[in-house]
């Protein structure tokens, strides 16, 4: 009995710690006052203000496009990387390959940011391009997202039942046909949740983006950061409410995708 109560207390404290700050942000998005610490009445004023905020909407649109492009590319490359890690037992440089795939996950973002910017500046000098903006941001996001897709695919492939693939091969399917008709469909849920993870990470990234963005493009996190630096702003609370709701839906979708066919 004492144990159950202890477990309950621990979880209650832990979840309160995780969720109370988020709950406060959501509550104050409906506050009337400009101060996000004093409740002065219910209002949709800041919701209207955010949806009339042209610069914020443009930044959100740019971020969504970058997230879509980079998650999709990262899903393809990450699928290949995860597949190679599990199925290609031996090839020259396999250890290096393994570290290269996982390293972006644990690399401090400031280090990755400065290094990628130097690469883009270098290529600008040598080849005259690409211009910093959509493309460079997407490339940076793809580079760190590959790891996350690869890990999910790798985990799925390690406890993979190979008898279906073997059956297909025995019946005369070529390796490519086997991959397309058996392996890929079974891996799709994992690729899908990897895609969602990559999409979320891209949408949220500030540091790497700030380094490689150039002067013209401003993503949503860059906008949020420059506004938040000056202090609390109720419009950011509204944005937070939207982000939290979308994330909750995405997570449920991802949980459903991975559970369905395991």
């Amino acid at each position: 009995m004492g144990r159950a109560r202890f477990a309950f207390g621990v979880l209650a404290f832990g979840y309160a710690f995780l969720y109370l700050p988020i709950a406060m942000v959501i509550v104050y998005s409906f506050n009337e006052s400009r101060l996000v610490t004093v409740w002065s009445g219910f209002s949709f004023k800041w919701w209207q203000a955010l949806f009339a905020n042209e610069a914020m909407l443009q930044a959100a649109w740019l971020s969504l496009r970058i997230a879509f492009a980079s998650a999709t590319t990262a899903a393809v490359i990450g699928l290949a990387a995860g597949y190679a890690l599990v199925r290609a037992r031996r090839f020259p440089g396999r250890t290096l390959f393994g570290s290269l795939v996982v390293a972006p996950m644990v690399m401090p973002e400031v280090v990755m940011g400065i290094s990628m910017l130097l690469l883009f500046v270098g290529s600008e000098r040598l080849m005259g391009g690409p211009d910093r903006g959509f493309l460079t941001i997407a490339v940076a996001h793809i580079t760190f997202s590959i790891a996350f897709v690869a890990i999910v695919v790798q985990a799925r492939l390690t406890d993979f039942d190979r008898s279906l693939e073997e059956a297909a091969m025995d019946l005369g399917a070529t390796p490519w046909v086997t991959f397309r008709t058996i392996t890929l469909p079974l891996l799709l849920p994992a690729v899908g949740s990897g895609w969602l993870l990559a999409f979320t990470l891209s949408l949220d990234d500030l540091i790497l983006t700030q380094f490689v963005a150039g002067a013209q493009s401003q993503t949503l996190p860059m906008r949020v950061y420059s506004s938040v630096r000056l202090g609390v702003d109720p419009q950011i609370n509204v944005l937070a409410t939207i982000v939290v709701s979308v994330a909750a839906c995405a997570l449920m979708l991802s949980g459903w995708l991975t559970r369905k066919k395991v």
């Binding site: 979320t200 996190p221 950011i236 944005l239």
Partner: peptide, 15 residues
Amino acid sequence: PFWTSFLIRIYAWMG
């Protein structure tokens, strides 16, 4: 919480 924005979670503590 990990799936929501990192920046916004830190912002939550500012208030």
